[in-house]
Amino acid sequence: MTNPVLKVENLSKSFGALKASNDVSLDLRPGEIHALIGPNGAGKSTLIKQISGGLRPDAGRIEVLGRDVTVLDTVARARMGLGRTFQISSLAMEFSVLQNAVLGALGARGRAFGLFRNVMRDAALLETAHDALSRVGLQDVAQQRTADLSHGQRRQLEVAVALTLKPRLFLMDEPMAGLGASGSKELTGFLDALRQEAPILLVEPDMDAVFALADRISVLVYGAVIATGTADEIRNNPEVRRAYLGEEELA
């Protein structure tokens, strides 16, 4: 149980002179929410992209469930059980909400080469899809066109699609953005319970949510992790205060 689900070791990635990831090491343990915070441009998105497989690191290695996945692509990592949500919603906008969830269920099944049977009448896929939608509270808009959803509902659908994959770990990039106060609180409660199913690496600018949820927090500044620890440790870390939280507290 103590083996980390995700292990990132000495990851580096540069764009020209810009070091977007500078010798980053972190891990995600079973049952925890590990939050990744840092000011704008700290390299959070670049890191997430490298972990999910969309970007190849210059150096370092990434391990998922004890297996080196550094050279695997996004598809292979998704199949290993990496469920990701995007900062900017990446959904099939022409589809209904339900179709997007069914697509996730189809991905979890791993085969999408049925050419004749109506996929929207596949009882097993529909059950998985409806189940995921009701868990995030989207069951009432299941038939709506995804493009007609509000910004917040799209975030919820992102999470629902990730749920259909029954992943072994979640990678969530700003899932609360655009949710509003009550929606954000609801999702906070939901993620709180979700960590028992699979650990979550969470990127989230909403500090209240992060400090309420996270078992551990890593602070990223200029591409490097300057501190990792519990909420209290991070709050009291002088370096973190100077680099990141300090401005608010001093003012």
Binding site: G54, A78, S90, L91, M93, L103, L106, G107, A108
Partner: peptide, 11 residues
Amino acid sequence: QSEERVETVGL
């Protein structure tokens, strides 16, 4: 509609 989405669900 979204290549990223399809990759992320493992297809």
